[in-house]
């Protein structure tokens, strides 16, 4: 299974980034193979608007099945939902800890965005 974690740095020891759209980067993990790679998010960090939508687009393009992050707003949630990507919010600690919690099945799936949009 392919999952993505928003991360403040490029390693499994980096902290989970609480922001989804404006995360420093994504770490995409293949939980079956135990491999991971870093997906850049620099363009969305610079975006004047719609960072969440485009970060969600990145997730769609990466074909992940679940996203682990701190907060997810309504627009990003809508795009992720359309792609049937499970969203897990309120995730803290390091990327490795988040993945361990996820594989242990102790991270509930978010049924709704947990923060307001920043735009409207």
């Amino acid at each position: 299974m392919k999952i993505a974690v928003t991360a403040q740095g490029p390693t499994l020891e980096s902290d989970v980034d609480p922001r989804f759209g404006r995360t420093q980067c994504f770490i995409v993990i293949d939980t079956d193979k135990g491999t991971h790679r870093v997906v850049d998010n620099a363009q969305n960090l610079q975006a004047a608007q719609g960072a969440g939508i485009q970060a969600a687009q990145t997730m769609v393009d990466q074909s992940v099945e679940a996203v682990l992050t701190g907060n997810c707003g309504p627009k990003a949630f809508k795009v992720l939902g359309a792609a049937r990507i499970a969203v897990h919010v309120g995730v803290k600690g390091t990327v490795a800890e988040a993945v361990a919690e996820f594989t242990a099945g102790s991270l509930p799936t978010a049924a709704a965005p947990n923060v307001e949009g920043h735009w409207s």
Binding site: A47, I53, V60
Partner: peptide, 8 residues
């Protein structure tokens, strides 16, 4: 303006 997303 990031106003579009394409899913499928």
């Amino acid at each position: 303006y990031n106003a579009l997303a394409v899913v499928g």
